[in-house]
Amino acid sequence: MTLNQPLLSAQRIVIKLGTQVVIDLAGDSGGRFATERLAELTRQCAQLVAQGKEIILVSSGAVGLGRQALHLTGTLSLNDKQACAAVGQNLLMEAYRNLFQQSGLITAQVLLTATDFADRKHYLNLRQTLEALLKFKAIPIINENDTTSTMELQEESYTKGFGDNDMLSALVASKLDADLLVILTNVDGIYTDNPFTNPNAQRISRIENFQDFQKIEASGQSLLGRGGMSSKLEAARMAALSGVHTLITSGVSPQPLEALLAPQPEPVGTLVLPQASFLSGKKRWIGMASGYHGAIVVNAGARKALVEKQASLLAIGVVGAQGDFFAQQVVRILDETGVEIGRGLTHFSSHEIERIKGLQSEKIADRLGFDADGKVLERQEIVHRDNLVIFEEYGV
């Protein structure tokens, strides 16, 4: 068995194309669609379809194409970016349609918002549609609907939708039971440091345990895109929670999907292995929720109890809240250094948490009084164990 056997045996493959793969920034192109590069990539996709594999593309690039078409420069407002997305989506799909048509394949545009994953009815309808497209051997081309959803376009937001197409691709791979997620970027994998600034940075060919990720310097992001290498690590981690292999590799190389088409001693790029223990349906939704609403910061004692003792999160271990959120929303759980240790469904709003942080559980009712129904408040855990996902338990 070759080291890239998981790539060769994958039947359903989600391929994410970053902005710097889709847009040509070289020379005087001015940020146009990278036709020659994408022609090779779509040809290889057609080869995979001919082998009986199912291909789903998650493509960035609409805002960049729209910016170029509208001759816009400088800093864009949120409304400007939405206008660019509206113009660029049409150009992006037309370019893909022409390229895939050369191989006799039909494309289908699928624009998503966070609600399409967060709402179960929306998700089931989406899944049925995508399953039908794959049955007809069409190529779904997915992007966040930036014209109506602003989450990807906002520079900073505690309330996060997809945030970038890296996370969107991980959610698609998870929800559609994909065998493999391929993230194509302008770097040939994950490095120990930024390879553009540190010539001694070493490429990591294989990641089996996410415990080592804190040692990786993954800062920085692309010129036109929103997602840096850290977002790709996050996407790979979320895919691993659902049992999906992830390959992070270069999309600007001559044959970006070569590792999927032929046996090789070692796949080019970084192969991230899925974990042996998978989450239940409810915890998978919490751990991979298409949106999270702020964060709860915990002290060292609470971190230890959550990670080592599988405890619920209590008010006495809470340092504070970040962002605005309500009860029964998914939030990130951060330690005091800012490291995300998990996610959970909170019993309290951010305003309530600021009032009860550091308290003994039995004193919460005295501080908050009555609930919305006029009854004495009985909630005690900030996040109950049944509604909590701690990443280290799953090796991620």
Rank of each mutant, 00 (worst) to 15 (best):
L334K: 07
L334A: 02
L334Y: 05
L334G: 02
D335Y: 12
T337G: 13
T337Y: 10
T337C: 11
T337N: 13
T337I: 07
E340H: 03
E340V: 09
I341V: 08
I341L: 15
I341S: 01
I341C: 12
G342F: 14
G342R: 11
G342D: 08
R343F: 06
R343L: 09
T346R: 01
S349E: 04
S349I: 03
S349V: 04
S350Q: 02
S350E: 01
H351I: 14
H351N: 13
E352T: 05
E352W: 12
E354K: 07
E354I: 00
R355L: 15
R355G: 03
R355C: 07
I356H: 12
K357V: 00
G358M: 09
G358Y: 07
L359R: 10
L359Y: 10
Q360T: 06
S361K: 00
S361R: 01
E362T: 02
E362G: 06
K363G: 03
K363V: 06
K363Q: 15
I364E: 00
I364C: 01
A365Y: 06
A365H: 06
A365F: 08
D366T: 06
D366R: 01
D366F: 05
R367W: 03
R367C: 07
L368D: 05
G369V: 03
G369D: 09
D371K: 09
A372W: 11
A372F: 11
G374R: 08
G374W: 15
G374T: 08
G374C: 12
G374N: 11
G374L: 09
V376Y: 12
V376A: 10
V376Q: 14
V376T: 10
V376C: 10
L377M: 13
L377I: 04
